[in-house]
């Protein structure tokens, strides 16, 4: 997998908990490096080792850490490009959730080799959805949960989210149920189609 994903974990550890913690994680996970390069490829199993080491050091479950990573991707300044690319999904939170169906293909358009898990959106009603995620290794569901929670705030929507796991059609699946209570609960954050560059 692209170092983009590994590097996201690294930046999360550095930005939220500091360089010192990251170096401990590097040691525990037995990594031969201190920094990931976003555009180089690294083995997938390093993601699990890093997450496990983070979870040990922070005294939180892997799922909790993963959810924090998801929220970090949307809310931290260093990750602003991620938030912006997600906001291209739609002008309202509902549209955004529906756009997750296309996220996999959208990402492919930009980075053909970045193989993120495929998402599928089930619509139950105007305000109730499930985002289903099929993946070989469970764990992305928790990241998705964090992303959706933070994106709800970003759009200013009041949402209740839940993560569930089961087997569907013989495949392991995770899904996040989304209940949208109020689309305009708060003002949310601004989004312009073109990023502001330095001086306005």
């Amino acid at each position: 997998m692209y170092g983009l994903v590994h590097r996201a974990l690294q930046c999360f550890a550095q930005d939220i908990y500091g360089e010192e913690l990251w170096l401990k994680v590097v040691d525990d996970a037995g990594l031969q490096l201190r920094e990931y390069e976003a555009m180089l490829m690294y083995p997938d199993d390093q993601l699990e080792s890093v997450l496990a080491a983070l979870s040990t050091h922070l005294g939180r479950t892997v799922a909790q850490v993963s959810e924090d990573v998801g929220a970090y991707l949307v809310t931290h300044d260093r990750m602003e490009p991620v938030r912006r690319l997600l906001r291209f999904g739609g002008t309202t939170f509902e549209e955004f959730v529906l756009s997750l169906d296309d996220l996999h293909d959208r990402v492919k358009l930009a980075l053909p080799d970045l193989d993120l898990p495929q998402l599928e959106v089930d619509v139950h009603s105007h305000t109730s959805f499930s985002v289903v995620l099929y993946t070989r290794q469970p764990g992305f569901g928790a990241v998705l949960l964090g992303i959706l929670r933070a994106m709800g705030d970003d759009y200013g929507a009041l949402v209740v989210l839940n993560l569930a796991r089961a087997t569907r059609d013989g495949k392991a699946a995770e899904w996040v149920t989304v209940e949208l209570f109020e689309a305009d609960f708060s003002s949310g954050r601004d989004f312009g189609l073109i990023a502001e560059t330095g001086a306005s």
Binding site: P81, T91, A110, F191, G192, L193, I194
Partner: peptide
Amino acid sequence: VQRYRLSGADFAPADPTVDMLYLIEAKSVA
């Protein structure tokens, strides 16, 4: 888009402009 602060809602859903802007931005990040 910059000058008149246009948003996704200002483009017809069948119009790929917003997708194009997304692609431009994603490609520049990469």
